[in-house]
Amino acid sequence: MDLFTVTMPSNHDESLQMLRDSLAKHVNADLHKLKPSAQAVVEFHIEGPLRIRCEASAAAFQLKADGPAVYKAAAHVIADYVISELEPQLLSAIIRKKYKNNPSMDAAIIEKYCYELLHGKEWESLGSRFHEADRTRRRNKVADELEKHLLEDTVLNIGGFLAFRLLPYRNELTDIVEYALDEYVLDKQYQEFISLLKYFVQLQESKVPIVHLLHKGGHEFTLYNESFQTLDPKPPADRLVAEMLETEMNIEDMVISSLISVSPKQITVHTRNPDMQVIRTIETIFDGRVNVCVKCSSCASTLDEWIQP
């Protein structure tokens, strides 16, 4: 008894065997939970370059009783395929369509921002279980629609299904693209702002030979002179730069304003986190003037006291 057929997108023939094997494994595993003594009761056959046919092969199979379990398991397997294999292409297609008349938009960079939103830096502070939970939510959204379709129709064309039946999911991907674009524009503006600061710093005359910047942890920094006496710098004298810093800088980056006002010839940053974003930004703005220390005789005991293990 033929149950349904699945047709892959035209450019995904290399995934045909992988999807067929996954369907056979997971669908029969779920059926065996219902009928522990049964052998494999459904088979999946590759037909042509892009098609998989599902067939009930055991006499004990009853469509009314066993069909829903087959459709539900198959829907989740195909949804996994959509999320892992097709989602990046869907995002790329949305970006190309949305910004085809805007040549200033770098599609590859926006795709990278989308990937980071779905898989990367946005989840770092929350932990992997939140990332997996969000992926599962998207998969379940797709699986629910797939299951409804398989209960109603014996033919599933994945490409057509994505185009016409998954509007809520596609709308969510469109929202992700728009959010990624906002992040891209903000980051681009910030990089332009950093370039302006770097240019201004290069024009400045040095006021002091060296300053020490001690990173206490988190976003806490303290500025010292060459004798390790605390510095209390005034705002930058240049009005334009002062206004730029006030409107553009993040709270944790205000240490840059202090460094610009002091205008040192050399900066030694004492930190246990040399890869922190604000430290990399300081290195960019004060190009060639920055030395990063992770543990020297001047700061070792102080940092060990401040930073909790």
Rank of each mutant, 00 (worst) to 15 (best):
M244F: 05
Y224H: 13
G120A: 10
L186Q: 12
V177R: 03
T174G: 06
L223F: 03
Q191C: 02
D106W: 04
I194Q: 07
H119A: 07
L214Y: 04
F193A: 02
Y115G: 00
K148P: 01
Y179V: 03
V155H: 12
Q229A: 12
P168E: 07
L156T: 01
V185N: 07
D134P: 04
P168L: 07
T230P: 00
G218W: 00
I176R: 12
L214V: 10
S125R: 08
I210E: 14
V241P: 02
Q189M: 15
P236G: 04
Q204T: 15
F228W: 13
Q202F: 07
Y184H: 08
Y169R: 10
F200G: 03
R129G: 00
P168S: 05
L214H: 01
L162P: 05
P236H: 06
T154K: 11
M244R: 01
L167N: 14
F161E: 04
H131K: 09
L196V: 04
R170A: 03
E116C: 08
M105A: 05
Y115L: 06
D187K: 08
Y169T: 02
T174N: 13
E111R: 11
W123I: 09
R239F: 11
T222V: 14
E246P: 01
H149M: 12
V177G: 03
H212P: 02
D238H: 08
L162G: 07
K121I: 08
V241L: 08
E183I: 08
L117A: 06
K234T: 13
Q189I: 11
F193N: 03
L118M: 15
Q191S: 07
Y190T: 02
P103E: 05
M244L: 14
A237R: 15
M105D: 02
V177C: 12
D232F: 11
R165I: 04
D182F: 07
A180C: 04
M244T: 00
L213C: 09
S227C: 06
V142D: 06
E116H: 14
Y199H: 10
Y224R: 11
T222K: 14
L117K: 12
E145V: 10
S227Q: 11
N140T: 14
L203H: 09
L223R: 08
